[in-house]
């Protein structure tokens, strides 16, 4: 039934709709560059969504855990074989994405007889020199983008746009400022996603919510506090100052407590 081109286009369109629904209640991912390195943040129910890929590469994902695991393993294998056969300096996020997983994700998306990969991926890469940090994001259809200072993943591109609008004018230098910023940006995204979802559920409109962007810190922190029930804040850092070749480390609960805004750290168990 897909032999005619327009049917194939229609099938891909349906697939887009199906995938958008899968991400509707996912947890956004935020990454920002600060003095100490690159900070990644998301909220998870227990299965982590932030991982180490290579010495200077970190991975954040939204979507189905099994699909994320499959692509994470692909990245890990490619990175380590390349690092062994050539050198650690040749393992770059750009090569892994462009020649590695982006074609795989795109192919899975377009092969309409097979299941697509329910994934959105962010790769953060700590540069060898200051100012050379890099982010790559890959959408479920294989489209990838490169960014320098920050990157976000969220259910839809309009939610991502809102998060970027909130994030862009703000500066963060210290790790504490970066933690504060990623938490609030996450809240902007999660709040927008929930509003859009509720609107769809109540049949008031099939489109995204069109209300004003909430930027009031207190509202955002209250939202986070509500969402923290049964979930955990996950933060990972590609730390410039850590000795040795592997720069990735997760922020443990003690460190996170000290870095979070005070009214949130008390809610952290």
């Amino acid at each position: 039934m897909y032999e005619e081109p327009y049917r194939w286009v229609e099938a891909v369109g349906n697939r887009r709709q199906y995938l958008d629904e899968q991400f509707a209640q996912g947890s956004p991912v935020v990454g920002v560059v600060c003095d100490q390195g690159i900070l990644l943040m998301t909220m998870s129910k227990g299965t982590p969504k932030l991982y180490e890929i290579y010495d200077r590469l970190a991975f954040g994902g939204m979507g189905h855990p099994a699909d994320l695991e499959k692509l994470r393993f692909t990245l890990l294998e490619m990175a380590h074989v390349e690092g062994f056969n050539r050198s650690a300096a040749d393992v770059t996020g750009s090569r892994l994405v462009k020649y590695g997983i982006a074609p795989v994700v795109k192919q899975a998306f377009e092969e309409v007889f097979k299941a697509p990969s329910i994934v959105k991926i962010m790769l953060a890469e700590l540069g060898q020199k200051a100012g050379k940090d890099n982010f790559l994001t890959i959408n479920y259809d294989g489209v990838f983008e490169e960014k320098n200072q920050y990157a976000v993943l969220a259910a839809t591109s309009s939610v991502e746009q809102r998060m970027i609008e909130y994030l862009r004018p703000q500066s963060c230098v210290s790790l504490k400022e970066a933690v504060d910023l990623v938490i609030r940006t996450w809240a902007v995204g999660d709040r927008a996603q929930r509003q859009a979802h509720e609107l769809r559920e109540s049949h008031e409109g099939a489109k995204e919510s069109s209300d004003q962007l909430v930027t009031d810190s207190q509202t955002l922190l209250t939202h986070i506090r509500q969402r923290m029930e049964g979930k955990m804040i996950e933060c990972a850092l590609l730390d410039r100052h850590v000795s040795g070749t592997s720069k990735y480390r997760t922020l443990g609960s003690v460190e996170l407590k000290a870095l979070l805004p005070s009214d949130l750290s008390s809610a952290l168990t």
């Binding site: 991982y51 180490e52 290579y54 010495d55 393993f73 380590h80």
Partner: peptide, 13 residues
């Protein structure tokens, strides 16, 4: 070199 990569790969996977 094999060991270094093996231990890292194990930890990360």
């Amino acid at each position: 070199r094999v060991l270094e990569h093996s231990f890292k790969y194990y930890r990360r996977t």
